[in-house]
């Protein structure tokens, strides 16, 4: 009886203009809830489409949307403030994109530093104007009007120190500002270079990357000082600067300090023994410690070597011409002749 009932019900439903939520399709409709997408692969009813295109398309769309909504109802549903809400799953269908997804902007050096140190860099919204007590008016935070206001404000500079009285303090302040501006510009350009991975020459004092040890630094300094046309004769020395050791040969005009002559043979012998000790201590190349382990594997390894050599020989084979046969399409190695 149940079967008969269900069939009858279906029949009634099909005739009913207010269609039910159950939709029957020949082929299953593909849906992607993440993008609220439904793809209908069923063949169109061409007869109906031609006779009543509007009606047919509307009913088809209704059916498909119904299926999509049915699927949404299958999801876990919540009630938030009298509204029923379902959370859509992640999208499966990959929407084609006209352009690339924009990359995140690379952080500037300061931003990176702030992030590492946990400094909050988010600025509170700054008002465009600020009340100035002295001038008794609103002054913009930037722009030409601000500069004018500051000029008004700082028409006089107090001199606390008598030594500084002679200096032009206005010019000093202007120069300091220029300095700050150019520093900021340098940092801006450096950040751009960093973001685009461009190598720029380092400025400032040499670091450990330039010179591994102090001896190298002093050598470089000596060579730089003596690299003038007059071999550094008129170059001032830095305070406490001394000539680097051990480069007398390379630097013209630099006198080599003569070795101290040993007073007697005993001292010479002592020196020589010290030297021998140093050589034995340092030179691992001369004395390979571990003699027990053979360096190369015998027999088998040699065979392999020979094979390897043969293969190599083929690779390096000298390019030959066509050997009398002319074939324009064949690619031949060798020098390009013009």
């Amino acid at each position: 009886m149940d079967v008969v009932n269900s069939i009858l019900q279906n029949d009634i439903q099909e005739k009913d203009p207010r269609k039910s939520t159950i939709v029957n399709k020949d082929a299953e409709i593909e849906t992607d809830l993440g993008t609220l997408l439904a793809l209908d692969y069923n063949a169109l009813n061409l007869k109906a489409l031609k006779s009543q295109p509007e009606e047919y398309l509307r009913s088809l769309t209704r059916d498909n949307v119904q299926i999509l909504i049915n699927k949404i109802w299958e999801l876990p549903v919540e009630r938030v403030d009298e509204v029923i809400v379902a959370k859509l799953p992640k999208q499966e269908f990959i929407l084609p994109r006209a352009r690339q997804i924009p990359k995140a902007k690379p952080l500037t050096k300061w931003q990176q530093f702030a992030k590492e140190k946990g400094i909050n860099t988010k600025r509170k919204s700054k008002s465009k104007v600020k009340w100035d007590e002295e001038l008794q008016k609103w002054i913009p935070t930037f722009g030409y009007k601000r500069n004018k206001a500051i000029e008004q404000k700082e028409w006089l500079v107090e001199v606390n120190n008598e030594d500084k009285a002679a200096e032009n303090l206005f010019a000093n302040a202007k120069a300091a500002k220029e300095e700050r501006k150019s520093k900021n510009e340098l940092q801006r350009l450096r950040n751009i270079a960093k973001a685009k991975n461009i190598k720029i020459p380092k400025v400032g004092l040499p670091t450990k990357e330039h010179f591994a040890d102090s001896q190298q630094l002093s050598q470089a300094m000596t060579i730089a000082r003596t690299s003038t046309a007059s071999l550094g004769k008129f170059q001032d020395r830095l305070p406490k600067e001394k000539d680097a050791k051990g480069i007398a040969k390379q630097v013209p005009g630099m006198k080599r300090k003569a070795e101290e002559v040993p007073r007697n043979l005993q001292e010479e012998k002592k020196r020589n023994t010290n030297l021998a000790d140093n050589i034995l201590k340092n030179n691992t190349k001369i004395l390979r410690e571990d003699f027990s382990v053979p360096k190369t594997k015998p027999a088998k390894a040699e065979k392999n070597k020979k094979k390897g050599k043969k293969a190599k020989g083929k690779e390096i084979k000298k390019p030959k011409a066509g050997k009398g046969e002319r074939n324009m399409r064949r690619k031949v190695g060798g020098r390009k002749r013009r």
Binding site: E259, L275, A276, I279, N283, I286
Partner: peptide
């Protein structure tokens, strides 16, 4: 007299053959 650099060259060469025994030649 051999300079220190040259003495070093000589002793290095000798150590290739007689190793630590080079001290016996000097002492």
């Amino acid at each position: 007299r051999l300079t220190e650099e040259k003495t070093k060259l000589v002793l290095e060469k000798l150590t290739k053959y007689i190793g630590t025994n080079v001290k016996l030649l000097l002492d």
